[in-house]
Nucleic acid binder design. Structure first.
Length: 589
RNA sequence: CGGGGCGUAGCUCAGCCUGGCUAGAGCGCUACGUUCGGGACGUAGAGGUCGCACGUUCAAAUCGUGUCGCCCCGACCA
């Protein structure tokens, strides 16, 4: 391919609005173009890279025995009503109406395909002999994000690989799950992205066990808990906190409770500012509605309540923050001044055990514009239930080895779930077993945000000059760059090299632009082609220059052997990313 | 949906506060010439309903109101 015949609109300056490396470089390298908030068109280079990721995903899926299908992006809303997910998805679901003649059909843009695939399977699978079956597709998903951001990392429309396993037993489900888990590890390794599988909440999709695949990155939106000693890793939403004995220091002096006016201070931040205290000295009291009954939940000021954990601790169905009315009724005060001491209405007190070791802390007074100081648990109030009801924070004990955990930001790129029978039950996907008895199919589902792999790579693999693509995802593997476009001998040599590479199945691009060398080099670095072959003065001696993007030094290679040499090196690199990873590790040390 | 910022040429921005000549710069683009190993230079050009609407005014890119769009923080989110 000749540079002059494709469309590569590189930019010298950072477009207004791009703030994180992946967004900045993908725009500047001319890979993507914004259409509206949360929607990007892939230009030739971006599309090529996305396609390579898709092919790697497809290859590994096929190797597991999964079978590719292609479902519709548009589905009747009624399908989602059967599983109650129109309500569950809420505003995330993009709805529309088809008008045909006088008839109107409500439809949705599919945010995922459990319903559709299950409906298909229920139609055509009826015997245990047809199972297990794993179907997958690679397709555009639509989710109305309330706040799309960070370029291609969070969009309303994105490319996803979604796979669904249909099993007859939990053992079979585990096999499918493990096969997917292993395939995901291979996929991310082949794509050159760092990844960390972590334990995860299964969220509104439902089901039991689940793991997320995370790319550790400073701009990631998820927080991951990691134990450096035993390697326990979990999403902060899920991470358990190791059990520890919390107790007040033996020499603690408990002061007298005092009531202090705190006008206008109804958030932790405001209270702290007002009383000149740290959030660690405050205990937050949140009133929750737990299956219709109000419950007070206590955590330290710098911690967040985790509703999933709370639900499990209380063995409840539904947990949500109580409304204003309930809070006022329970506390006798407006929102923001709730405290455990002297609640107007007797409610259950649930607390994080961390508060046991707190001395003379601050709580709301259940009275407008007032807080209590020097409050101590057991002396001033008693807790009904202690439990792990908050998100882990840096330094909490690991649930397995009790070492202090670390936290990092990460980008979610994959998620595997054991779904169970939630969808097959709702949509009547059943089969007859060996005994001729009717059974409900057991399901698993497995997703990869393919477009996020590309953004995640750019986010984790770049330098000041631009992106550093591994061979496996690079839009072109080799950029052949004659220093002078007007030099006929150089151009002829370049064309021959490109033709040779292409004939051997290497993706090569010829920078045939009549630009000054500096411009070409800068563009090549910005886009991040793994190999640049420079044809300049050395050609007189029969030499060209081969420079790998992530290596400092270029090497001189004979113009006659450069094609063979590169074909060999690239073949190996495509499969292993060995040079790429070696350079990354070298940089780390 | 709350808070903040921005909207002037393909891109990055100045001009707006304090209204007034033909609305500017750099990059990019076109032509010609000189250059040619890390974003060259000269000359000549093309390119703009100043996001949109209404209002104030003799006069609006500039002031006011409204609206739309984009970005960031928060809430939200398989």
């Amino acid at each position: 391919m000749k540079w002059s015949q494709t469309l590569i609109p590189t930019m010298k300056e950072t477009p207004n609005g791009a703030e994180i490396p992946s967004h900045i470089f993908m725009l500047r390298a001319g890979m993507i173009s914004q259409v509206m908030a949360g929607a990007y068109a892939y230009l030739p280079l971006g599309w090529r890279s996305l396609h390579k990721a898709i092919n790697i995903v497809r290859d590994e899926m096929n190797k597991t025995g999964a079978v590719e299908i292609f479902m519709t992006a548009l589905a009747p809303q009624s399908l989602y009503e059967q599983t109650n997910r129109v309500e569950a998805f809420g505003n995330v679901l993009i709805k529309s109406t088809l008008v045909r003649g006088g008839a109107k059909t409500p439809v949705v843009f599919c945010p995922t395909h459990e319903e559709e695939v299950t409906s298909i399977v229920s139609q055509y699978v009826s015997s245990y002999r047809q199972l297990p079956l794993v179907l997958y597709q690679i397709q555009t998903k639509f989710r109305n994000e309330e706040r799309p951001k960070f370029g291609v990392l969070r969009t309303s429309e994105f490319t996803m690989k979604d796979a669904y396993s249909f099993n007859t037993s939990l053992e079979s489900l585990n096999e499918s799950y493990n096969a997917m888990y292993d395939a995901y590890c291979k996929i991310f390794t082949r794509c050159g992205v760092p990844y960390l599988p972590v334990e995860a909440e299964s969220g509104p999709i439902g089901g039991d066990a689940s793991h997320e695949f995370m790319i550790p990155a400073a701009n990631g939106e998820d927080d991951v808990v990691y134990c450096p000693k035993c390697h326990y890793a979990a999403n902060v939403e899920k991470a358990e906190i190791g059990e520890t004995e919390y107790a007040r220091p033996a020499d603690a002096v408990l002061k007298e409770v005092a009531e202090l006016p705190t006008p206008g201070a109804h958030t932790i931040e405001q209270v702290c500012k007002f009383l000149k205290a740290k959030p660690k000295k405050v205990v937050k009291t949140l009133i929750y509605d737990v299956d219709g009954t109000p419950v007070a939940v206590l955590v330290r000021g710098d911690c967040d309540v985790n509703e999933n954990k709370l639900r499990r601790v209380l063995k409840a169905e539904k947990v949500e923050l109580a409304d204003e009315k309930t809070i006022e009724r329970v506390t006798g005060a407006p929102v923001g001044f709730a405290g455990p001491v002297g609640l107007k209405e007797k409610v259950k007190l649930v607390a994080d055990p961390t508060i046991k070791e707190m001395v003379n802390f601050i709580v709301g007074a259940n009275k407008a514009e007032t807080h209590l100081v020097n409050v101590n648990v057991d002396r001033d109030f008693t807790v009904d239930v202690y439990g792990d009801v908050r998100n882990a924070i840096l330094g909490d004990p690991c649930p397995h080895c009790h070492e202090p955990i670390t936290m990092e930001n990460a980008i979610e790129v994959g998620h595997v779930f054991k779904l169970g029978t939630k969808y097959t039950e709702a949509l009547g996907a059943k089969y007859l077993d060996e005994k001729g008895e009717q059974q409900t199919i057991i399901m698993g589902c497995y997703g990869i945000g393919v477009s996020r792999i590309i953004a995640g790579l750019a986010e984790t693999s770049h330098d000041d000059h631009g992106i550093i693509w591994p061979v496996s995802l690079a839009p072109y593997e080799v950029c052949v760059c004659p220093v002078k476009a007007t030099d006929d001998a150089a151009m002829a040599a370049a064309e021959k090299i490109v033709a040779g590479l292409e004939a051997a199945g290497v993706d090569a691009i010829l920078d045939d632009r009549d630009e000054r060398p500096g411009v070409k080099f800068k563009d090549a670095d910005l886009i991040g082609f793994p190999v640049r072959v420079t044809i300049g003065k050395g050609l007189a001696d029969g030499k060209v220059e081969v420079k790998w993007r992530w290596e400092e030094e270029a090497s001189l290679v004979s113009v006659d052997s450069v094609v063979d040499e590169l074909v060999g090196q690239l073949k190996e690199e495509r499969d292993t990313n060995a040079r790429f990873y070696a350079a990354k590790n070298a940089k780390k040390n």
